[in-house]
Design a protein around this nucleic acid. Structure first.
Length: 740
DNA sequence: CTCGGGTAGCTTTTT
DNA sequence: GCTACCCGAG
C-alpha cells in the first residue's frame, strides 16, 4: 500500500487519493496519466472505498484497456475479472448480451464493423432502387452514424428539406434491415445501451448501485452520446451513484472529425459541479527545449483549459529544422540523419518518422528501402480486416446466425460455385416478397433442391452440424477446410500468405478460448451463448494489431494521429508546409486551425531527446508539383529553442491569416542578410507576382497566390479565393491584379 | 466469371 | 501520381 503511492509527485498523489467525488484530471503529455488511473483503482480497492465489482473503467482502444488490466495485475493480485474495464463498445456489447431481451435483440446478434456496415447500406440502396449517385453510400453511412452518435433516432431528426427527409427514410429502412438481420453496428451498440438504461429503471438502478467509481481515459475524445451514457450510468442528482473520475487533455484533442466533443470537459465540470480539477504538468518524457517549444506553440490556441508542461531533465538539444528543395531531398536527408543516429548507437525502433497524411509515406518509404534501412509502417489493413479472414468469419457468422445477409452475400459465391448476379437478383426479389432473410428465402425458390443456391444452404447446414460439438478452434479449422477456402487459396498463385493468415485465425481462436473464455464466463453470465458468438464479437470489436513485423529493429513510420500516446528518442516531423500541415481543408473549418495546432503539439511532445522538423520548397501532390509556404507553426516556435540546419530563408508573409501578427519580417536577424539568396525555384517568373501575393480577379474576387508551376507562356498559379475557393489560372490568360 | 481499362477522388481513425 | 472501384469485353 505504501509502495503503491511511492514515487508519485504531489499532483499525481492528490489525484490518486481524492476522496470519492467527481474529478477532472488534466493530464498533460507524458505526465503519467495511465499510472494515475491504474493506481487510483488500486488505491480505491485497497482502502475499501469499493470492491472490484464497483469499478468501471473505460477507454477508447483495446490497447489502452489491455494495458490498464496488465498494469493493475502487476500492481497487486487483483480480481480484474470482476471489474468492468474495456472500450466503450466492448462494455456496451457486454451489457447488451446480458440484457438482450430488454434491448430487443436476439442473444446471438452480430456486430457490423465499418466495412460490413457500408456493404449493408449499399445492399439496401440497391434493393430500394435508390440512385447511389444522389445518395452515396459512404455519405449515408456518415449521416446515420452522425445521428446515432448524437443520440438521435430517425423520428427525432430535424429534416427541413427533401434531401434530408429522404435520408431519414433511408435511416429508417436501414434500422429495419439491421433488425431483420440481427446485426448491430458500432454506434448502435452505444445508442441501444444508452436507451435501455434510460427507459428501464430497474436495470438503470442496478448498475447505478453497482458501479461506485467510473474512470474515463482520454476524456477529451468522448462524443456526445458517450458523455450522456456516462452521465446516466453515474446517476447524477437524485439517483445517487458513482463518482466520475475523468482524465484527459484538451490540448491533445485531435478527433473532432470523428465526433469527439472537447466541450464535454467543460460540461462535465459544470454538470457535475466538479470541485477538484487537478493538473498533471510535470512531464517525464521530453527535454526542456522540446517542451518549451510545444508549450509556446499551443499557447496560441484560444480555447484552452490551460496547462504548462515542465521537466526537471534539463534543456537538452535544440529543435532542429531543415529546409529541403523537394520531397525526395527531404526524404534523403531524413534517412541520412537516421543512419547517423543509428551509427551513434540509437536503436532504430526508438526513431519515429511522422507525417500529417498517409500519402506522404511513399517517398519516405522509397528512400528508406533503397538505403536498406529497416522500417515499419503503421496504418495498413489489420488482421481481422483482411479479405481471407473476413471470408472465413463470414462462414462462421452464417453458422452462428443465418439471417446475416452481409455474411451471406460475402461468401455465397466465394469460392465460386456458379451463383451469378442473375440468381442472386432473383433471390433478393424473393426475399423482399416474403420479407425473409436471404438464407431463409432459398427454400421458397420454386422447389429446385439441386440448384447451386440450394447446395450452398446445404453446405452451411452441414458445417453447422459437423461443428456443433467441436471446441472453438476446431470449428474454425473445419470451416476453413470444408468451405473450400483452403483449397481455393492453395490453388491461387499468391495464396500462400493468405493461407498463413487463415492458420493464424485458427490460432487466434485457440487463444481466445484460453484467455477470454475464462474472463467472459465471469459473473452474470454476461456472455453465455456459444464460444463462437463470443469470438465473432471479439473479431468485430478488435480489428487486431496493425500488421508489420512487431519487435523487429525498425524505424517507425506513422501519421501524427497514430503516434498519439507513443514516445520515441528521436522524432522526425516531415512536411511542415502550409496546406499540408496545417492541412488546407482544416483552414476553412471553424476552429480547424486550432485542431491542427493541437495535432502539431501532439507530434512535438512525442520526442524524448531529439526533435527534427523538416519542410520542402516543392512537393509532388495529387500528380502536380506544388510550391508551398513553410508552415506557420515553424514561426510559432521561439527562435532560441531551434537550430536551423539550413539557412532560414524569409517566409513570405501569409496575407490572409491573422496569425502573421506573430511574424515580423522587419525583425529578421541581421545574419539573414548574409544568407544565400532564395534558391532558383522561388524566383520563377510570375510576371511580377509571387507566392503569398494578394490578388484580385474580375470574376472570382480577392485571393492569395498559394502555388505556382510552369514558366513563360505556360506559367500557372493557384489562387485561393476568399469566396470562390482555390483555382489554377494561366497567367497568360487570367487577369490578376496585385493588391496591397 | 475474370481480367483490365478507364476514371474519380484524394486528411486524420477507433470501435 | 496512385489506387480503389466500376463497368464492359472476352
Amino acid at each position: 500500500m505504501s509502495q503503491l503511492l511511492d514515487n508519485l509527485n504531489p499532483e499525481q498523489l492528490a489525484a490518486v487519493t481524492l476522496p470519492p467525488q467527481h474529478a477532472l484530471i488534466l493530464a498533460g503529455a507524458g505526465s503519467g496519466k495511465t499510472r494515475v488511473l491504474t493506481t487510483r483503482i488500486a488505491w480505491l480497492i485497497q482502502n475499501h472505498h469499493c470492491s472490484a465489482q464497483g469499478i468501471l473503467a473505460v477507454t477508447f482502444t483495446n490497447k489502452a484497456a489491455k494495458e490498464m488490466v496488465a498494469r493493475l495485475s502487476a500492481m497487486f493480485p487483483i480480481n480484474t475479472r470482476g471489474m468492468w474495464i474495456g472500450t466503450f463498445h466492448g462494455l456496451c456489447n457486454r451489457f447488451l448480451r446480458a440484457h438482450h431481451r430488454e434491448a430487443g435483440l436476439p442473444q446471438l446478434f452480430q456486430i457490423l464493423d465499418s466495412g460490413d456496415q457500408l456493404a449493408s447500406i449499399k445492399r439496401l440502396l440497391k434493393a430500394l432502387n435508390v440512385d447511389d449517385e444522389k445518395f452515396p453510400p459512404k455519405e449515408l453511412q456518415h449521416f446515420i452514424n452522425g445521428q446515432k452518435e448524437a443520440g438521435i433516432r430517425p423520428a427525432a431528426v430535424e429534416a427541413w428539406d427533401d434531401f434530408t427527409r429522404r435520408r431519414v427514410e433511408l435511416y429508417v429502412e436501414y434500422e429495419a434491415q439491421c433488425q431483420r438481420e440481427a446485426v448491430v453496428d458500432f454506434p448502435e451498440l452505444l445508442l441501444r445501451s444508452y436507451e435501455l438504461l434510460e427507459r428501464n429503471e430497474p436495470i438503470r438502478r442496478h448498475y447505478q448501485a453497482r458501479f461506485r467509481h467510473i474512470l474515463v481515459d482520454e476524456f477529451q475524445d468522448t462524443n456526445v452520446l458517450q458523455y450522456r451514457w456516462l452521465s446516466l450510468l453515474a446517476g447524477k442528482g437524485t439517483e445517487g451513484g458513482a463518482s466520475l473520475f475523468c482524465v484527459g487533455d484538451d490540448d491533445q484533442s485531435i478527433y473532432r472529425f470523428r465526433g469527439a466533443e472537447v466541450g464535454n470537459m467543460r460540461d462535465f465540470e459544470r454538470d457535475f459541479r466538479v470541485g477538484s480539477v487537478i493538473r498533471l504538468e510535470q512531464n517525464y518524457r521530453s527535454h526542456g527545449n522540446i517542451l518549451d517549444a510545444a508549450n509556446a506553440l499551443i499557447a496560441r490556441n484560444s480555447k484552452r483549459l490551460g496547462k504548462n508542461l515542465w521537466t526537471d531533465r534539463g534543456a537538452g538539444e535544440p529543435v532542429r529544422i531543415y529546409e529541403a528543395f523537394t520531397d525526395s531531398d527531404e526524404a534523403r536527408w531524413i534517412v541520412e540523419e537516421i543512419q547517423s543516429l543509428v551509427r551513434d548507437g540509437m536503436s532504430r525502433s526508438d526513431i519515429a518518422l511522422l507525417y500529417r497524411s498517409n500519402a506522404q509515406s511513399r517517398v519516405l518509404e522509397h528512400q528508406l528501402f533503397s538505403s536498406g534501412v529497416a522500417y515499419r509502417v503503421y496504418g495498413g489493413l489489420r488482421f481481422f480486416e483482411r479479405q481471407e479472414v473476413k471470408h472465413a468469419l463470414a462462414y462462421l457468422r452464417l453458422i452462428n446466425n443465418p439471417d446475416d445477409d452481409t455474411a451471406f452475400n460475402r461468401v455465397v459465391n466465394f469460392p465460386t460455385r456458379g451463383i451469378g448476379a442473375r440468381s442472386l437478383e432473383t433471390l433478393q426479389d424473393a426475399a423482399r416478397t416474403f420479407n425473409t432473410p436471404l438464407y431463409q428465402t432459398v427454400p421458397h425458390l420454386s422447389g429446385k433442391p439441386g440448384t447451386a443456391l440450394g447446395q450452398f444452404v446445404g453446405l452451411i447446414e452441414r458445417l453447422r452440424q459437423e461443428t456443433a460439438n467441436l471446441p472453438l478452434h476446431e470449428i474454425v479449422e473445419h470451416v476453413i477446410e470444408r468451405s473450400g477456402l483452403s483449397a481455393h487459396y492453395k490453388a491461387e498463385k499468391e495464396g500462400q500468405e493468405r493461407l498463413e493468415n487463415l492458420a493464424e485465425l485458427i490460432n487466434a481462436a485457440a487463444n481466445f478460448s484460453a484467455e477470454a473464455g475464462a474472463a467472459y464466463e465471469a459473473e452474470e453470465g454476461a456472455v453465455d451463448g456459444s464460444a463462437l458468438a463470443g469470438f465473432l464479437a471479439h473479431a468485430s470489436l478488435e480489428a487486431g494489431d496493425h500488421q508489420a513485423d512487431a519487435g523487429s529493429e525498425a524505424v517507425q513510420l506513422m501519421t501524427v494521429h497514430a503516434a498519439k500516446g507513443l514516445e520515441f528518442d528521436a522524432v522526425f516531423l516531415s512536411g511542415l508546409e502550409e496546406g499540408l500541415f496545417p492541412h488546407e481543408n482544416s483552414i476553412l473549418e471553424s476552429d480547424g486551425l486550432e485542431e491542427e495546432r493541437r495535432l502539431m503539439y501532439v507530434a512535438m511532445t512525442r520526442a524524448r531527446q531529439r526533435l527534427y522538423i523538416s519542410f520542402t520548397q516543392s512537393r509532388m501532390l495529387h500528380g502536380q508539383v506544388r510550391y508551398n509556404l513553410r508552415s506557420r507553426f515553424l514561426e510559432e516556435i521561439p527562435e532560441g529553442l531551434t537550430k536551423w540546419l539550413t539557412p532560414p530563408s524569409p517566409r513570405r508573409s501569409f496575407v490572409s491569416e491573422p496569425s502573421t501578427r506573430y511574424y515580423n519580417p522587419g525583425a529578421a536577424k541581421p545574419a539573414m542578410a548574409s544568407m544565400p539568396p532564395p534558391p532558383p525555384m522561388k524566383s520563377r517568373d510570375l510576371g511580377g507576382l509571387s507566392i503569398g501575393q494578394s490578388v484580385q480577379h474580375a470574376r472570382f474576387g480577392d485571393g492569395v497566390i498559394v502555388a505556382a508551376e510552369g514558366s513563360g507562356n505556360d506559367a500557372r498559379v493557384q489562387v485561393k479565393f476568399e469566396t470562390a475557393g482555390a483555382k489554377w489560372l494561366m497567367l497568360a490568360v487570367a487577369k490578376l491584379t496585385p493588391v496591397g
